[in-house]
Amino acid sequence: MVPFSHSLLVAALLFGMGLFCLLTRRNLIMMLLGIEVMLNAGALAFVAASLHWQQMDGQAMVLFILTVAATEVSVGLALIVALYRRTGSVDPDPPADRQLAAQAGEGGV
C-alpha cells in the first residue's frame, strides 16, 4: 500500500483547492462548495491516519465530520436562500462593497 504521507499529500491538495474556491469565488454557494471540499479533505486525512495507526477512532471522527458537514450545508443554504429572498443576490458582500471591489479589481475575470 502507499505510504501515509502520500495520502496526506492528496488530502492537502484537496484542501488547498477548497481553500482556493472559498477565497476566490464571488458567490456564496460556490464558497460553501469550497468548504465542503475542505471538510472532505480533512475526512480523507483522518481515514488515512486511521489506517496508519490501525485505530478506528479516526474513522469515528470522519463520521462526526460528515454530521457537521450536513448540518453546515443545510443551515448555510437556508441562510443563502434567506439572503437571496431579501437582497436578490448571492454575493458575499453588501452592494456598497461590491462596487468598491469592482473598482479595485479591474482585471476581474
Binding site: 496526506l8 492537502a12 479591474e106 476581474g108
Partner: peptide, 25 residues
C-alpha cells in the same frame, strides 16, 4: 454575479494555498 474574485487578489490566495502545501510537505 457568478464571477471570480478580482484577479489582482488571486495571488494571495495562490500564495496561501501554496504555503499550506509547503507546510504540510
Amino acid at each position: 454575479d457568478d464571477r471570480f474574485f478580482p484577479f489582482l487578489q488571486w495571488w494571495p490566495a495562490l500564495l496561501i494555498s501554496g504555503g499550506f502545501l509547503a507546510g504540510l510537505l
